[in-house]
Design a protein around this nucleic acid. Structure first.
Lengths: 206, 206
DNA sequence: TGTACATCAGTGAACGCGCGTTCACTGATGTAC
DNA sequence: TGTACATCAGTGAACGCGCGTTCACTGATGTAC
């Protein structure tokens, strides 16, 4: 039964097949982004992915030219969302929001749910071994993210340069999470998160 | 011509075949460690690796039970070397040595030569998706490394706990390097290294 | 509004390649006597 | 010291599996008239 969604994911019956296709594409990008973050680029299999969104593997190429193109698209979408999320924090008290962000970022919950959290710790190493398309998307996304974070961390920053504090903060966040995830030993992992959290929040509290 | 090394790598003729085997094993571990750091675990192929040390693929299993076991052994060896390297720094002026270490760690040369530098940025993400053997080796290695670095960064530290400053420093080092390597854009990459370097050295200079 | 046709999402078998691993075999090394 | 034998590093063909990608085909959708 092609082109039929019995129980549409969003609870609303899909009117046209064009909307249906669009929805499938979104589901694919979403499932891919989650999969990539949890399992890495090579850990995501095209056939599995298609099954996840209720299709068979052959149809994949109606949506993307290749797995590489999917990777680039999925990264692009997720990176944009991330940067927007940071930008949305430029509220009243940036210090409070920043500290909250740091604590959420380096929480045990985030460590255990890479598929729902920041791309940088889970995918950066993979990206460095990917093709130019993915790397370019990633570079743009990172620039954008740092720019957004710079509004919180770098009060007087150079016009064209990088927000240095944002770089330092993100580096610590990413490094701590990367190490905490690699480690086998719960106590060590928790300790790494805790120490990094302390170091960062001490700098930005009040 | 098995068991014959015409031009021994170290310039000294190998006396016995037992020494020969030992040498091959060392070469394998070394080549594997370098390969893993540059190309990731999946990027290293058994056949290529064996060719690199002048053997054919079939012989691999005389040395290791599996590719996984190689990964664990290679990580173990390299991690021990790393920690020793940090321990060797506990000289007269720790501050100077630490700053020099940071600057070397976050240099462009290090970024461009992952195969010769710290395992953590290049392999941590991979390790989190590896089997328990590798992860345990990695955890032990990281603990050891942090302990060594703690002697430089944490003057009064808790007996059994983690050296917090060491965790913070290493996190920043790792995160910055991971991001700098992922990025496609030379200028952005250099900027990340520079900003992270500044942030860290400012903290430990004098 | 109804009909004929083109388009295209979706299917699943098949392809082709890469790669970890196995295995029968070779020949050198080292040892027992 | 010399000889016979066991051991084992090394070889390369072959296996088996997984996976990205292709392709011929189906049938529903959407459009032209």
């Amino acid at each position: 039964m092609p082109n039929v969604v019995t129980i549409p994911p969003n609870g609303v019956a899909l009117k046209t097949s064009r909307a249906h296709v669009e929805k499938n594409r979104e589901n694919l990008l979403d499932a891919a982004s989650k999969g990539f973050r949890r399992k890495g680029f090579e850990g995501v299999k095209v056939a599995e992915l298609m099954q996840e969104v209720g299709l068979t593997h052959g149809g994949f190429y109606n949506y993307f030219k290749s797995k590489d193109e999917l990777a680039a698209s999925a990264c692009d979408t997720s990176l944009k969302r991330q940067a927007d999320c940071v930008r949305a924090m430029s509220g009243a008290d940036t210090s409070v929001e920043l500290v909250a962000y740091i604590e959420r970022y380096l929480s045990q919950a985030s460590r255990d749910a890479p598929e729902n959290t920041c791309l940088f710790p889970s995918l950066s190493a993979d990206v460095s071994r990917q093709g130019e398309a993915v790397r370019t998307v990633f570079s743009d996304g990172l620039r954008d993210y740092l720019d957004a974070m710079g509004d919180l961390t770098d009060t007087d920053r150079p016009k064209d340069g990088l927000p240095h504090n944002a770089v330092a903060v993100l580096s610590t966040l990413v490094g701590a999470m990367v190490l905490a995830r690699a480690v086998n030993d719960r106590q060590l992992s928790d300790g790494i998160l805790y120490a990094a959290r302390q170091s960062l929040t001490r700098r930005y509290e009040k």
